Amino acid sequence: MNGKRSLINKILFITSSLQRGGPTNQLYELVSSNIFRESFNVEILSLSPLDINSSRSNDFKQLGLPVYSLNDNSHNYFVLKNKLYQFITENDYHTVISQGIRADISISLVHKKLSSKIYSILHNYIGPDYRYTYGYKSSLMTFLHVRALKKMNVICVSESVGHYVKHQYHLNTIAIRNGVSPSVPKIKSSHIDGDKIKLVYVGVLNDRKGVRELIDSFIKIERQDVELSIVGSGPLSDSLIYSDRRVIFYGQRNDIADILANSDIFVSNSKFEGLPMAVLEALSVGIPCLLSKIPPHQEVISLSKAFGSICDFNDTPAFSHLINESLGIHPDAIIDDFNRNLSSDVMAEQYKKILIS
């Protein structure tokens, strides 16, 4: 597409912040896709300042996208809605897409005054997710978020999330699975007998992710030919102390792609997810996954036998058996099915169809 893009293709993404994490990573994968960038004139607005810890604002700027901020960390939705209304009307966007509770609630308060088409990208199970993260505040947060979402066109990041919010909150949604761009293929074409079998977890270290239970289950496996790498940080970072030398803590890292490419199996014992980006990143380099039995994990595994298995990590013999079984999956089979189902281009094409309809 040459020349100035028409107004119909001018899109504003509003996010509560650009802090590194699932929603920000998904947004980056979407807007960095050539399919999306060639079809839309994209701009990004963060409610919070751009210089917060672990911000990805520079990553978006390096794509050549305008990135703005309201520099507002508050939950004063009446102030936020006025700021958003002014920003949107002054810049004349055809489509506005919000994500995150602060952005969703704020935009819902002015949606009737806007000529823009309004969407929200919903990443989580709302109620259960908020209960794990915010405790006693979760009921009010859930009520306000659901009420806001009922005023918008909602895109869920998985069919699992869509089914849940329809059943629980009577929300009608469109499901578009998260996707990631193809990465560097797995370094080893297959596991070599005699090598350590390298399991890897990448993500936040908190109760919702079930990291402590994952490690406790792993150390019950008596075999010495396996090791578990824990990559990430979070509230549990200081309390996860184990003497088992097979468990290796890497902390927060910027070379995730390299770590994944040198691993054999990705593991996750998460209790709630939308559609986990870390799982998709592992599949993109050809690593099979062992995942806890939750609907989004089951949705991913159902797409291809090559993607791995659902695992009851508390069943030590079954856990050990699935490790051996996973080693028989060839990386090329994983990557082929990943490209057909979960790539960023597949995701971008689906967003494109909806947004230009």
Rank of each mutant, 00 (worst) to 15 (best):
L70F: 02
A261Y: 06
V226K: 13
Y119M: 01
N2Y: 09
G210E: 09
I215H: 10
L280N: 04
L30C: 06
V67P: 00
S263I: 03
F143A: 12
P331L: 04
I126D: 00
L275N: 11
V157G: 01
F40N: 00
L114H: 11
I176Q: 06
L228W: 08
D345E: 11
C156P: 01
H170C: 08
D332W: 10
R131F: 09
F40C: 00
K196A: 08
L205S: 01
K271F: 14
S239E: 04
D193N: 15
L149G: 06
E213F: 10
H75S: 14
I176F: 05
V204N: 06
H145Y: 07
L327R: 15
L80Q: 02
H163A: 11
I197C: 07
R245I: 09
L260Y: 03
D258H: 14
Q26S: 15
H163C: 06
S309P: 02
E222I: 09
N71E: 05
M1Y: 08
A282H: 03
K112P: 01
Q224V: 12
S357C: 06
V161Y: 01
R253I: 05
I256H: 02
P66M: 09
F60Y: 01
T316C: 09
A175Q: 10
R131L: 11
D51A: 04
H297K: 06
R102P: 01
G328V: 10
H94L: 04
L283E: 01
Q99V: 07
G210V: 11
Q26C: 15
D332R: 13
Q350S: 12
Y125H: 07
V346C: 08
S116Q: 09
D336N: 13
Y242P: 04
S237L: 09
I44F: 01
D315I: 10
L114W: 13
D337A: 11
H75Y: 12
I230D: 02
V204W: 05
I248K: 11
Y351V: 10
N314W: 04
L84G: 03
P331V: 05
K305G: 06
I265D: 01
I8R: 13
N254W: 05
L80C: 00
P295V: 02
K112M: 02
Q224Y: 09
L291F: 08
L63W: 04
L63A: 07
S32K: 07
N34G: 06
D255E: 00
P235E: 01
L30P: 05
K150M: 14
D72H: 03
I176G: 04
S233P: 01
P317F: 10
E325D: 12
R246C: 05
F78H: 12
D59H: 07
I287Q: 07
R245H: 11
Y93K: 10
I287L: 12
R102W: 04
S326A: 14
S263F: 01
S284C: 03
K112I: 01
S17P: 05
